Simulated assay, not measured.
Amino acid sequence: MAAHEQALSTSSIEAGGLEFKMGGRECEFQARYVEEHHLGGGGCRAVFAGYRITDRCPVAIKHIPKDRIPIKVTGENAKRVLVEVAIMLKLAAEADGPVGASAPVSLLDWFDLGTELILVLERPVPAVDLHDYITANGGCLPEEKAKVILKQLVDAAKHLEDKHIFHRDIKSENILIETGSDVPRVRIIDFGLSCFAKERSVCRLFYGTAIHTPPECYGRKKYRAGPTTVWQMGVVLYEALHVGDFNTMTFLQKELKFNKDLSPHCRNFLDACLTNVPEKHPTLGDLQLHPWLR
């Protein structure tokens, strides 16, 4: 069994306590929710805006064909269940506050329609993804504004790590920024590639955004949750502070340009996240204590 499959097998134990059940039929979904315009979707996933009929609460509605579900875990009733559902149920079961209080958006409802799954997710309003937020701010953010976002993002990633959840694809497009207050608030979306992983779990098959692949995947052909998530913190920060996208191969070839006006603490934080050697990465806990975020 491959290492990443071992990590997923462990996840059925980690998720033990959750109740896996059929979410209902199509008529139930249509009786509860109205689906509106297309929001976006990666790969086989299509996501639509919508609202809950009873209170017109905004929701995001994700359609996932059953024959294209990449990662499943085994639930208590021995059925194979979408790991995204298992993870979001775990987050909901262990939430410290009401819906909307945590960084990951909440799973509100889900429906198994036989040929597809429908996930009904919290949709913060007003909000834009970080990529669009950066674009709207002129293509890069001032360092102080980037710091506000990174501090929340590191805290959110550490919260997931503490629950043995590895998102695997934290990037600007998967980070929502709530813009309804003076201080932008970070929310994490799209757990479609996520998995359960313990501290020393090793993954060999890469899931994520190809241009953000951590360097160890090229040389060692394996990666771990902690160092990879820290690497992704660096990728997000780089794209927040520079015009243009981050590309691992360009970085490894030393062709990626860095902003020379960054403060020493900020540049140190960025360099620590983007080190080539995973063993030299700080932990997420270390990042929380870094002088740049203090």
Rank of each mutant, 00 (worst) to 15 (best):
A3S: 15
E5A: 09
L8D: 11
S11P: 10
I13N: 07
E14W: 14
E14H: 15
E19F: 08
F20T: 05
K21S: 09
K21A: 12
M22D: 11
G24A: 02
E26D: 07
E26H: 11
C27E: 14
A31M: 14
R32Q: 09
V34F: 10
V34M: 09
H38L: 15
C44F: 11
R45V: 10
A46G: 03
A46D: 12
Y51T: 06
T54R: 15
R56Q: 12
V59D: 07
K62G: 04
K62L: 12
P65T: 07
P65D: 01
P70N: 05
I71F: 13
K72A: 10
A78Q: 13
V81H: 12
E84F: 00
E84R: 05
I87S: 03
L91C: 03
E94I: 02
E94T: 14
E94K: 11
A95W: 05
G97T: 00
G100A: 01
A103R: 09
P104S: 03
L107D: 03
F111N: 06
E116C: 08
E116V: 03
I118R: 11
L119H: 02
L121P: 13
R123M: 14
P124D: 03
V125G: 00
V125S: 07
V125Y: 09
P126K: 14
A127Q: 04
D132W: 08
A136R: 14
N137V: 00
C140P: 11
C140I: 06
P142I: 04
K147R: 15
K147C: 13
L150C: 10
L150F: 03
L150N: 01
L153V: 02
D155S: 12
D155F: 11
E161A: 14
D162P: 00
D162N: 12
K163S: 03
F166K: 04
H167W: 12
S172C: 13
S172Q: 10
E173K: 09
T179L: 01
S181D: 13
D182S: 14
V183W: 08
P184T: 05
R185K: 13
R187I: 06
D190K: 15
F191H: 09
C195V: 15
C195T: 15
R200D: 08
S201A: 14
V202N: 02
V202Q: 07
C203P: 04
L205E: 11
G208Q: 14
G208K: 15
T213L: 12
C217A: 03
C217D: 06
Y218G: 00
G219T: 15
G219Q: 14
K221V: 05
Y223G: 02
Y223L: 09
R224H: 07
A225E: 10
A225T: 07
W231R: 05
Q232M: 14
M233E: 07
V236S: 01
L237S: 01
Y238W: 09
E239S: 00
A240C: 13
H242Y: 00
V243L: 13
N247F: 03
T248R: 01
T248F: 01
T250Q: 13
F251P: 02
F251C: 01
K254R: 13
E255C: 09
K257R: 10
F258K: 06
K260L: 12
D261W: 08
C266R: 02
R267E: 05
N268L: 02
A272K: 13
C273Y: 08
C273M: 03
K280D: 10
T283A: 00
T283L: 08
G285D: 08
D286E: 03
L287G: 04
W292Q: 00
R294Y: 09
